[in-house]
Amino acid sequence: MNPILEQIYATILPSAPFVIAAYALVWLALLVYVVFVTVRLKRTEAQVTALEEALAHRQTDETASVLKKD
């Protein structure tokens, strides 16, 4: 390569991994956080579904016991 161009570009190739790593780490940190929140949300949604089912069962049982008494 032309020695002047070599001097001009001297820092570009060696610094590229650091620049890429910096941007990748920011996005990775954000992605990990979003995944963490999403997993928690999914878990909570599953709990809501289970609670709704439990509530429905309880209501059915209560209705049945009231009908029996009558």
Binding site: I8, Y9, A10, T11, A16, V19, A22
Partner: peptide, 16 residues
Amino acid sequence: MVSNQLLFSQKIFYFH
């Protein structure tokens, strides 16, 4: 016309 080294690492600044 370029007569200086081009500092690529400075691009980190735009997110940092």
